[in-house]
């Protein structure tokens, strides 16, 4: 039956930034977009991937010996230490099996709803104390709508507050499946111009805006999240356009909708290296304080509640 199992790549406890209270985050694997600033590149593909983490690697060579495809190169002089030829690698995991230092690792595992619930329920005490709960993140949660709907339904039925963090680029059918079980949407807007959106993320903006309106009209709690990327979407004009859209959305909503500004960071950079993927924003600095003040000023002047993370 569809939705019995899902592909996740992490469960993180004591998360303080993705929704109210103390939360557990379930990271789903697979995303329809390919944002060039993506901080979780391991979340993009829907299948289980093999990656290599140089920081714990001791260069023992076991992976090299184990690889049936001979696609691993030992590179003592390279900072990556071990180089996987991802074009040849079929993610069989023979190298993961032999690695004792958690350097060769899988990104992604198949789980059932019950398995995830078993982890999530361990922190029930903390959710109830702090009005926290569970947040499904990703990747794109609604890329696996049946599984996520089943998981959220389970959490709901046990009294746990539910949130999902979404890029919104999903079919209306998928959204419909998940929508009834979500208490809070953390909904991304990445760019107001559809062509630009497509250029930076691989997908157009219209379906996203359509889905936001669906959620807003359904009367759900929703917070807009805006990844502020230097040179991509942080021009004054664009920020004003965004603010105007916020005003528009607020006009449709029963409750005020706030916006979280997520300034660019490069914490994900080493994960690109682990997976042998190129990183577009290498060397880019985090936005200066003035930029954060500017966006705050624009949003506030439009009467929008704004938090800069």
């Amino acid at each position: 039956m569809a939705g019995e199992t899902g592909m996740i790549y992490n469960i993180q406890k004591y998360s303080l930034d993705d929704g109210p209270g103390i939360r557990t985050i379930v990271f789903m694997k697979g995303c329809p977009l390919r944002c060039k600033w993506c901080a979780n590149p391991e979340s993009q593909e829907t299948f289980r991937q093999v990656g290599h983490r140089a920081s714990t690697c001791v260069l023992c060579g076991k992976c090299y010996m184990a690889c049936p495809k001979k696609c691993i190169t030992l590179a003592p002089d390279d900072e990556r230490k071990v180089i996987i030829d991802h074009d040849v690698c079929d993610n069989c995991g023979a190298c993961v099996e032999v690695c004792l230092h958690d350097a060769m690792r899988f990104y992604g595992r198949v789980v059932t709803v019950d398995e995830v619930w078993k982890e999530v329920k361990k922190d029930l005490h903390y959710y109830f104390d702090t009005h926290g709960g569970v947040t499904i993140s990703g990747g794109e949660p609604m890329y696996q709508p049946d599984f996520v709907a089943a998981l959220l339904k389970k959490c709901r039925s046990e009294g746990v507050h539910t949130a999902i963090e979404t890029c919104g680029f999903v079919s209306p059918e998928s959204l419909d499946k998940v929508l009834p079980f979500v208490d809070l949407f953390l909904f991304d807007i990445k760019h107001m111009d559809s062509d630009e959106h497509k250029k930076w993320t691989g997908g157009p903006n219209e379906p996203i805006q359509q889905n936001i309106e669906t959620v807003v009209k359904a009367g759900k709690d929703i917070t807009i999240r805006f990844p502020m990327i230097p040179g991509v979407n942080d021009s004054h004009e664009h920020l004003v356009k965004l603010a105007e859209r916020m005003v528009e959305l607020n006009g449709m909503a029963k409750k005020p909708i706030g916006i979280d500004i997520m300034p660019f960071h490069n914490f994900g950079e080493n994960k690109y290296q682990n997976l042998g993927m190129p990183y577009f924003f290498a060397g880019m600095d985090r936005p200066p304080q003035e930029k954060k003040d500017e966006v705050m000023e624009i949003m506030t002047s439009h009467g929008i509640t704004c938090v800069v993370r």
């Binding site: 303080l16 209270g21 103390i22 005490h125 903390y126 104390d129 702090t130």
Partner: peptide, 15 residues
């Protein structure tokens, strides 16, 4: 907010 969450940790530990 984060301080309140640490307080929740303490309380839960004791509870």
């Amino acid at each position: 907010e984060k301080i309140d969450k640490v307080i929740a940790l303490i309380k839960t530990f004791h509870r």
